[in-house]
Simulated scan of single mutants.
Amino acid sequence: MTQPESFPGLHAWFDTPLGRYVTAWETARFDALVADIFGYNALQLGAPEFDFLRANRMPFRFTAGSGRVQVETDYTALPFAAASIDLVVLPHVLEFASNPHQVLREVERVLVPEGQVVIAGFNPLSLFGLRRRLAGEATGYPWHGQYLSLRRLKDWLALLGFETGLHASGCFAPAVDQEQWLHRLTWLDCAGERWWPIGGGVYIIQAIKRVHGMRLIMPKWDRRAAGRALAPLIQKAGGPTKGCSQKSTDERNSGRD
Rank of each mutant, 00 (worst) to 15 (best):
L166Y: 07
R105L: 04
L125C: 02
A24K: 06
V89I: 15
G200R: 09
V176R: 04
F14P: 01
V34L: 00
V103R: 01
R20T: 06
D86K: 04
F122N: 05
V103Y: 05
S84A: 00
G140P: 01
K209V: 11
A32C: 01
A24H: 10
A28E: 07
A81T: 03
R210H: 10
C171H: 05
P4T: 08
Y147E: 04
E193W: 07
R61I: 04
F162K: 02
Q3K: 14
W187L: 08
V71M: 01
A175K: 01
E137R: 14
L90Y: 10
P91R: 06
G39Y: 03
P142H: 04
I234G: 12
G121P: 01
S66V: 05
R57K: 10
D51A: 05
V69N: 11
Q235N: 13
V112A: 07
W156Q: 09
P232E: 03
Q146A: 15
N99S: 13
L18N: 08
L111N: 00
E106W: 00
L188W: 13
G170Y: 04
I234M: 13
V211Y: 07
T186D: 14
H92C: 15
A168C: 00
K209C: 08
G9F: 05
R210Q: 13
G161F: 09
G115V: 02
R215Y: 11
G65F: 14
R109A: 15
W143Q: 05
K220T: 15
L216S: 10
H144M: 05
W187P: 00
W195C: 12
S169G: 07
F38G: 06
F172M: 09
E49W: 04
S84F: 00
S98W: 06
Q116I: 11
W143T: 01
D177L: 11
G255L: 08
G136C: 03
R105P: 02
E163H: 09
T241Y: 07
P4E: 04
R54I: 08
N99I: 11
H183L: 07
N56H: 13
L104S: 12
W13I: 03
L157G: 14
F14V: 07
D257V: 08
A35E: 15
P232H: 03
P17C: 12
F128M: 06
L153K: 08
D15L: 10
I217W: 08
L134R: 01
T27K: 12
Y141I: 10
F62R: 11
G199V: 13
E26M: 15
T186W: 05
V88S: 00
G200F: 09
P100N: 06
A24T: 12
D189A: 10
I208Q: 12
R29S: 11
F80T: 02
L78Q: 01
G9C: 04
S84K: 00
T164L: 05
E163S: 10
H101W: 14
L230A: 11
R29E: 14
P124G: 03
